[in-house]
Design a protein around this nucleic acid. Sequence first.
RNA 1: CGGGGUGUAGCGCAACCUGGAUAGCGCGUCUGCAUGGGGUGCAGAAGGUUGCAGGUUCAAAUCCUGUCACCCCGACCA
Length: 513
Amino acid sequence: MAKAAKTAITPTRADDYPEWFQQVIRAADLAELSPVRGCMVIKPWGYAIWEHMQKHLDRMFKETGHQNAYFPLLIPLSFLQKEADHVEGFAKECAVVTHHRLVQDEKGQLIPDKTAVLEEPLIVRPTSETIIGSMFAKWVQSYRDLPILINQWANVVRWELRTRLFLRTAEFLWQEGHTAHATSDEAVAETMQMLEVYRTFAEHYMAMPVICGEKTEGERFPGAVNTYSIEAMMQDRKALQAGTSHFLGQNFAKAQEIKYQGDQGKEEYCWTTSWGVSTRLIGGLIMTHSDDDGLIIPPRLAPQHIVILPIHRTDEEKTLVMEYCESLKKELQAVSYDGEPVRVMIDARDLRGGDKMWYHVKRGVPIRLEVGPRDVAGGAVFAARRDQPDKKGTPRAEFVAGVAATLEAIQTNLLERAKKFRDDNMRVIDNEKDFRSFFTPKNKDAENPEIHGGYALCHFSEGPEMEALLGELKVTIRNLPLKGQLPQDTHTPGKCFLTGKPSPQMAVFAKAY
RNA sequence: CGGGGUGUAGCGCAACCUGGAUAGCGCGUCUGCAUGGGGUGCAGAAGGUUGCAGGUUCAAAUCCUGUCACCCCGACCA
């Protein structure tokens, strides 16, 4: 027996975190780069995770009164033009469609037909505020038509220059909610409600703790009055903006004439919101839970909860073991977890035991069951949890009876583990010296600087000095946490850690993706 | 999009500086036999227009030009 590698993934997180991330994706077969620059192919195992995410989010959207609809991929250029900040935010990264026909040149190469130029260029949607707003303008006449609560599942394109699988791709899948309301209060309430939906989803389903808060002016969505985000901490202690919810005020309503007549007959502009999460969540999922042996998927989102690995030598053993596995599978499928049948597969491929086991370890299946002749004889299973190193034999009936609880224990453990990690790496800082040392690795000139930093909770005031310091340390203000989420008191007024100017509340500072 | 780097088999690399004949190696893959409860062993096999297009040369993976892609550093970002 050759000695096993210490970890299934090389390099480890500590050795080279970004490379580890790539290797986890590859080892779990989640996605790969496509021939199209910056665009990824999401493979079945990765897409299945997305489908589970979609399923739960979609239900939560519907439970809060939203309906799905679909709007075009292509948007007239003039639509983007209507909201000035929006132009500023997206113009630089738009894919543009200018022709509607190809012809062959002298060399037989296909080129856009010069006689088939579009009268008005179209852009591939980077987000759909404008096209959806233009339809809202038609749909809303009276206060009786409000609110309009729409969600769409779609792909969008933002021509990013530096891409990373799941975290920043030129094309990504997401959902975008768009709503229109009669009053500012209602729209604000909607914005906050959806932020809370995202928080719940992140924590309950992804087992990924997040901080809800408002973005500072500089980090706002182009065209929004307020932007709120959920921020998660990855295992390299960098922040990942995992979802956003925007209060758009009347900016888009005015730009697009979304108006209604009130019950007193007066014409008013609507108040709108938009909110979205994307396949970036999968990146967050990977970097929150996975270890040096690969992916770890929280049970609620796992495409398979349990994989059964039959172990046998002779044909006789095979018959016995397979029979046992099949009936065990049926028994487990009859159990319900999180409101659905437990998802079980038998991996009967003709591979060696160790290879097969590592295959599923790297793909993050929550529970592995090894079943061999000894277990068949003893009416047992040999069970391993992906979130724990050890495995143990358990009587079959006991395992089946406790399987839902075990899955829930894994889910809870992952959340607790992630929460502890975040809290251990989050601290209040009130002076520049500590701030600098918090965000500077000890070996800052090394090829791969050590993992360092985390979340700094600081009183602050925005200005050139702050901008310079943050630029130097590559730190950003993630958000201004909403009250009462964190163990630390963030809302007692204080003084900016840099300038000493008065500050009403603390912000979360971190390096970010 | 600016600065730097790299493109050689599925993956990781060697040969390039100093041009030379059949482009090597490891892993993986495939086949056979023995194995099989944490990455097994032995034997054999397949797999390449050296990213692409030009140029220099008797001769190009190697030198030159262009181009595309990827990586790193900036700027931008769900």
